Amino acid sequence: MRAIKTGIPDVIILEPRVFGDARGFFFESYNEDAFAAATGLRPRFVQDNHSRSAKNVLRGLHYQIKQPQGKLVRVTAGEVFDVAVDIRKSSPTFGQWVGAMLSAENRRMIWVPQGFAHGFLVLSEFAEFLYKTTDFYAPEHERCIRWDDPDIGVEWPLQGAPLLSVKDSQGIPFKDAEPFA
């Protein structure tokens, strides 16, 4: 597994070693020791999630103010633009974002640590998105920042208006969001 630094040091892009031939391919999508060797981290994952979304669906920017979740995310079908926003008030990168293309083809993963809001935009006809979390989903603690907040300025590669859930269309401005200490 190879770790690739991003503009926010705590957010890490990971590339697994893929073994392939004419029959297909094999790779370890998660190996605790390989992850620790590449990142210096050894998170405890407690939940796996799997979603399928249509083209132009934008999910986010989500986080949990209590029971914060670190996430290891990847795409098994299609392609997404994945985004992490630093909402740790004491961080030198507070309010900054990083984004990366994740696809079934490039097999990249992103580690999004606790203290970040997370979202993604589906670029292909559909995408299947898998993620491991370090804490359980707690809807009473979930928060949503506006996907198009001008103070954050995420440069989404949109082609037309995004398809949003009611929750995501009612996201709050970044300046009003509850940050992490």
Rank of each mutant, 00 (worst) to 15 (best):
T6E: 08
V18F: 00
K89N: 10
R17S: 13
P16A: 12
R146W: 01
V98I: 13
S165I: 03
I12Y: 06
P157Q: 05
V18T: 05
E15I: 10
F19Y: 15
V75E: 07
F26G: 04
I13K: 13
R108Y: 06
Q170V: 01
A38H: 08
E128K: 07
E28Y: 08
T6D: 09
M1D: 07
A117V: 01
P113H: 06
D135Y: 07
I65Y: 13
F81A: 11
H118P: 10
A100S: 14
P9F: 05
P92W: 03
A177C: 12
D33W: 05
D135P: 02
G7N: 14
D148H: 08
S51N: 11
P162R: 14
R44K: 15
M109I: 06
L130P: 02
K5L: 04
L102K: 11
E105M: 03
G20K: 15
L121R: 12
F19R: 11
N106T: 04
A22H: 15
R44L: 08
L58M: 07
E142D: 13
E32T: 13
V57W: 04
I110L: 13
P173F: 00
D48M: 14
D149R: 11
N31T: 08
F126G: 00
L41W: 11
K55R: 15
I4H: 15
S51R: 00
R59C: 01
L123P: 04
L158S: 05
G20W: 04
F126D: 13
P113Y: 03
G70C: 09
M1Y: 11
V73W: 05
H118Y: 10
I87V: 14
I4N: 09
N31Y: 08
F136V: 00
S91F: 05
D33P: 10
E79C: 12
G99V: 03
T133N: 00
F45R: 12
E155A: 15
I13C: 05
P162I: 04
W156H: 07
E125M: 06
Y131T: 04
M109Q: 15
D86Q: 08
F35T: 04
P150L: 02
R42H: 05
K167I: 01
